[in-house]
């Protein structure tokens, strides 16, 4: 049975997708079988790995509305397998809101295929809607990417409250694995202060920070993870270190 890890933070632009792709690639490098699931209607993860979201026949949207089994949506790529999404997923959210048991739609879908993988990583949308609830209900663990700036704190408090709701209502075993500081700039006092403050404030483990780099912006344009695009870059090594501690 696969270990399912949600990468969640309702704030946009905190490197959820970058982290999901990089961690997936880093875990796959260890020989594990990894599936990435794109749960964002913006389909950034699908695009980042070289897929054209608008040209896809089946996506996670079709799974949510019961049109196809999740197995038929999987794309086997060089770095790992992917269940892609596209803008239609925005409609699935409205569809799910009318359904009893809507929190379990993803979990039930993944039950069909989780024996084929060691790790399933869920790239959550930048919102606390029903798709994020589905991810948190399906996950064993959640990792919270956090951009090292003051406004990011606000989102973490709200997300932890939602995680607590999920633990109470739909997934008692969900565990917060830790906060993943991203876009860290060690030259600024501000970044260092935020990093120091965040673990203490929420009493959560904090992974080693991932430094800001233009390479993270270039990699998706090449349809590759940072690990394939710039294998020896410190950013790639940072994700390898985090992946090792995540799977330990």
């Amino acid at each position: 049975m696969a270990r399912t890890i949600a990468i969640a933070n309702q704030k946009g632009g905190v490197a959820k997708t970058t982290s999901c792709v990089a961690l997936g690639a880093a875990i796959a490098e260890t020989g594990a079988r990894v599936l990435l699931v794109d749960l964002d209607p913006q389909a950034s993860l699908s695009y980042s790995l070289g897929l054209d979201p608008d040209a896809l026949e089946n996506t996670i949207h079709d799974v949510f509305v019961g049109r196809v089994p999740v197995g038929k949506t999987i794309h086997q790529l060089t770095e790992c397998d992917v269940v892609p999404s596209n803008i239609d997923l925005a409609g699935a959210e409205a569809y799910l809101l009318t359904r009893t048991g809507r929190e379990y739609a993803l979990r039930m879908a993944l039950d069909e295929i989780d024996m084929h993988y060691n790790f399933i990583l869920l790239d959550c949308p930048p919102s606390l809607g029903v798709l994020t609830i589905n991810a948190l209900t399906a996950a064993h663990e959640v990792v919270i990417p956090l951009q090292c700036e003051a406004l990011s704190h606000r989102g973490v408090g709200q997300l932890l409250e939602t995680i607590s709701d999920v633990q109470r209502l739909t997934n008692r075993d969900l565990r917060v694995r830790g906060i993943l500081p991203t876009m860290f700039d060690p030259r600024t006092q501000h970044s260092r202060e935020i990093l120091e403050d965040v673990g203490r404030r929420y009493s959560l483990p904090v992974f080693d920070p991932v430094r800001k780099s233009i390479r993270f912006a270039e990699a998706p344009r090449a349809g590759k993870s940072i690990l394939r695009y710039a294998s020896s870059h410190p950013g790639a090594d940072a994700y390898r270190t985090i992946a090792r501690s995540l799977i330990a």
Partner: peptide, 25 residues
């Protein structure tokens, strides 16, 4: 920000984010 969030969290609205869940707590 956190204090403001905690204040707002004390006013649960069943038509707000609780509506995301179909199961009762």
């Amino acid at each position: 920000q956190l204090a403001e969030h905690l204040r707002s969290a004390r006013r649960p609205d069943p038509l707000g984010k609780r509506a995301l869940f179909s199961v009762s707590g």
